[in-house]
Design a protein around this nucleic acid. Structure first.
Lengths: 332, 332
DNA sequence: CTCGGCTAGTCATACGATTGTCTGGGCGCC
DNA sequence: GGCGCCCAGACAATCGTATGACTAGCCGAG
């Protein structure tokens, strides 16, 4: 008994030509075949547990049925969550997901010839040049929208920012500051825009000094929040554009002796399992990251199908998760 | 100008047969060739930017140069970190990494024929049966060691447990309780063993009641810690076998009105970027997870190379990261 | 009776690389 | 000078699938 069952083995077992088996299994409509013969073929394939050889198929059709995903840092829970969603959607469509970490231009050569399309996650620190990505393969930018010649999938960061700030406004806050992410990343810019829009539609004029730009990590949040909390008059609330930075902001408040939420409210961006167990439990905006991963794959597949794809935004709206870190401002 | 450059195109450009190009590029020692001709071949390949067609090569050699990794949950930072290390090692060896999430038996069919070897991460909730994995492909268990017929790569969880508990002992603690993980997972069992060993070698008899088994997440840590902290006499320190559970334990302490570290010391397992920003900053044991991912790939490649591979343990020792959550016990 | 057309398939080739085997020619050796 | 040997490559056969082209046989129509 030979260990790999080929098309011709199935054909022999069913008493037909290999090409018939191929067409039956792929559902070729142009093949005319007696129901009885078709049954024989299907039965033989099932009995022998036939699995098409991916390499041969790829060689012949020039399609790998694999998509690649390059992210700056797989250990970052945001990217990992996106990847998880992407893997799910890829599997559903019969594709596999191939991951790499680093920058797209560095890593693309490693994936050359192994993927039909590419998902690119870009570090917030990167400012892409036009035409930089997708050397040959169709590519899609995930969680960033940049004029680099490839379409993107994003979540509604602006709505998320507005949601967070509206929540604070509705609690009665007026002096709301924003720990913003790197402004070269449009993602961070959109969150800032959501912040500004919410304030303006409430008739609050956002002061430039209320906005502190920083990196999206704990240390960055700590530094920026410290700066904002030394302002006079001190903001009564902080909208932090990232959950890791929010942890840093909470630490900064503690360090300055400010009680949260009594003296200061804090709202983070992106939810994380641990947010509920922080001290105090962190109010956050939950973004549909996994959904974004799925959507990205779907759009990429559309692109592969020859359809043209625009920048899209995941329809699932952000969701406010109210916990203990937000409360009405102190009465003066 | 045709867009895909084949071996025969390079051959034509160099004025030789395609087989010569193949052997030159693959460094076949059995080929004898004039240096001048070799140069012509190399120059032609470089000039035409020749890239071997992976599918054709795979078809011919029956090697995919890809390894698969199936983990229960990619969004879990531990698995993501392991994956990151694995991806790095795979790339170094000229392989690509293909990820999937779910259980190995469910997902293996999706990877069939696309990988040369498989890395399996198992959920702590799973108890594997012998012979369950690796239908056909060489497989390696990551971060678990189970008698299921495939070798494993682990980190030194016992040493990690001992490290944590020794730290607490050296601070003067004697009533040290342990929030343990699911005992069907050997990983959790080894941490428990490290805990027990450290106590015993210090002449402290571990009470069975000091050990609370739970799941490795925030909620589990919260519940288990609450139970332990209601004991009489109350433990003065907690060794929590997981960083997420440690966050839950800190929350439990707060809830019970216990000040950390004044009234209670807490040490977590696995470090995470946010641990330094918790209140109080969490003392943890840092495990070489990324290194484990790298090691796993290296071992898997050895297995593929026909060498036999034993259960191995990453040599890099765990590292104690002392922060604010551990201090000498209160003086009665 | 013959021709056309349809049914139910068969045949053959291509995809691009690897690798075992073979050969023309030059040269050394006796 | 003839023989064999080695050098430097050429030849050819796969690997397993997909797919355009083709055909044997049968039936119905004219």
């Amino acid at each position: 008994m030979r260990r790999t069952v080929r098309l011709r083995d199935v054909a022999a077992a069913a008493g037909v030509d290999a090409s018939v088996v191929s067409r039956v299994l792929s559902g070729d409509a142009r093949l005319s075949i007696r129901p009885e013969t078709r049954e024989r073929v299907l039965a033989a394939a099932a009995r022998l547990d036939y699995r098409p050889n991916t390499a041969a198929r790829t060689l012949k059709t020039a399609r790998t049925m694999a998509i690649g995903m390059i992210v700056p840092d797989l250990a970052n829970v945001n990217y990992a969550t996106i990847a998880q969603g992407a893997e799910e959607a890829a599997t559903t469509a019969g594709y596999v997901l191939l991951v790499a970490h680093g920058s797209a231009s560095d890593r693309l050569p490693d994936l050359h010839g192994r993927i039909d399309g590419l998902l690119v996650g870009m570090a917030t620190s990167e400012t892409p040049r036009h035409g930089e990505f997708g050397g040959g393969v169709p590519a899609l930018l995930v969680n960033r929208r940049e004029p680099c010649g490839i379409p993107s999938v994003t979540v509604d960061d602006e709505a998320g920012g507005t949601l967070a700030v509206s929540h604070l406004l509705s609690l009665g806050h007026r002096r709301i500051a924003h720990v913003a992410g790197p402004q070269n990343a449009d993602t961070a810019r959109r969150r800032l825009r959501g912040y500004t829009a919410a304030l303006e539609s409430a008739g609050v004029r956002p002061e430039p000094g209320w906005i502190a730009e920083t990196t999206f990590d704990e240390a960055g949040g700590h530094v920026a929040a410290t700066r904002l909390l030394r302002l006079e008059p001190r903001p009564t609330a902080l909208f932090v554009g990232n959950v890791r930075a929010a942890i840093g902001a909470l630490a900064a408040a503690r360090r300055l002796g400010l009680r949260v939420p009594d003296e200061l409210s804090v709202v983070g961006f992106h939810d994380a399992p641990f947010a509920a167990y922080l001290d105090p439990a962190l109010t956050t905006v939950r973004m549909p990251l996994e959904e974004m991963g799925r959507q990205a794959v779907d759009s990429l597949l559309a692109l592969l199908g020859g359809r043209s794809v625009d920048d899209t935004m995941v329809a699932t709206p952000p969701e406010l998760v109210v916990r203990a870190s937000s409360a009405p401002p102190p009465t003066p």
